[in-house]
Amino acid sequence: MAPIPTIDLPASYESLSLTHIKISHSPIGSPTVTPVVVISLNRPENNNAFTPQMADSLTQAFHLFHIDPRIKAVVLTGAGKMFCAGSDLEIGFGDGGGRAVDFRDIGGRVALAIHRCHKPTIVALQGSAVGVGMTMTLPAAIRICHEKGKYGFVFTRRGLTIESCASYFLPRLVGFSRAMHLITTGGVYPPPCRNILAISLPRLSRRRPKFCRLAQDIAEYTSSLASSMSRALMWEGPSSPEEAHLLESRVFHHMVGQPDYKEGVGSFLEKRKPRFKADPRESCPPNFPWWTAANIFLEPSATKTSKL
């Protein structure tokens, strides 16, 4: 069996240099990694338009958060007045050359990284967002928006189809009827954007305590293991209530035997803050994942003909 690859975790996420994004601790400047980290899309001069480099940086960051037991919750926001203006159309998407079977959209890579991360993501859309600026937020646990912002899935108005796994996430979040409306019109709407954005604030302050308060509450009072498994049950659940009952029962039975359950009950009875310690990657149920994940990796191709 091949050895399991290891990744060195940073002593500080603020010291990482990643293109087109910025990572900070909460509070900013903490000498050690904090339970809540904040990622900011960092192209304010371009309204944080999405680029391949930004996609690479976000994917790398969420992979680190996934395996880092010090991280409990993630906030994703943007620098400047707009969350994300969609893909940078000056860069474009190529000319459609090459084999379609080998193409992987960059927004989808980010969406999958957020979806697969055991730590919940809160998206603070401090300004408007369109295109991939919306679709990449769909796997997040919570989306908070500014009531004066505008939000939309404008793909059909650019001659494009949806991406970032939106055909999977969007109907599950808002229902097929609303999803069809949003995609067919390609319109831009104020909040609540047909119920995609769970929370709308009259003024989204840039003060860190304002939009990190919810993430801090999650980090302090919820079990990362229980949160991760609960979200997986909803996203990757069975197709019937009977099957859901059987699956939930198996996972629930596993959770009852975990230290986090004993700590949750104990802290409630003792009227104190819980001290959850379970790492989802080490304490997940034996049947996790209970679904078969599609292989998204590219097939290798031969570069030359062998002389053998």
Rank of each mutant, 00 (worst) to 15 (best):
S12E: 02
P289H: 04
A11K: 11
P171T: 09
M54Q: 14
M1N: 03
D260A: 09
L197Y: 14
H253E: 15
I296G: 00
E90R: 11
T77P: 04
A219H: 04
N46S: 15
G264L: 01
A232G: 03
N46T: 12
L246H: 15
Y168W: 09
C165E: 11
A11E: 14
P209W: 06
P139Q: 00
I21Q: 04
H253F: 10
A141N: 05
E248I: 08
L298T: 10
L125T: 07
D95Q: 11
P259V: 02
H66C: 04
S227M: 15
D88W: 10
F176M: 15
P286F: 06
G94A: 10
A113G: 00
Q53F: 12
C84L: 09
K72L: 04
L182C: 11
P241M: 00
H63A: 13
E236M: 14
T135Y: 06
G237F: 08
T156A: 04
E90S: 12
E248R: 13
A124L: 06
V38C: 06
V154H: 07
H115T: 00
Q258W: 07
I7R: 12
I218M: 11
I196H: 03
R203F: 12
H25N: 08
F153H: 09
F288I: 05
I144S: 06
K150Y: 12
K22E: 10
L308S: 13
C212E: 12
F211S: 07
H25D: 00
I196Y: 05
D279S: 09
L197G: 01
N42C: 14
S267C: 15
P274A: 03
L138C: 02
E236N: 15
A100S: 10
R157H: 09
T51A: 10
T222R: 10
C84I: 01
A179W: 09
G264I: 03
G98C: 05
Q258H: 06
L247Q: 07
R231N: 07
I7G: 04
M54W: 04
P190R: 13
A215F: 07
G108Y: 01
H146K: 09
S167I: 03
G108V: 01
D260Q: 06
M234R: 14
S227F: 13
F62E: 00
V132W: 01
S26M: 04
K148E: 11
E299R: 12
V36I: 08
L201W: 03
I114R: 00
P27I: 01
A198Y: 02
R207E: 13
K72Q: 14
E236L: 14
R157N: 12
P280T: 04
M134T: 06
P285H: 02
I162K: 02
I23L: 14
C212W: 03
R178D: 10
C212A: 06
V101K: 13
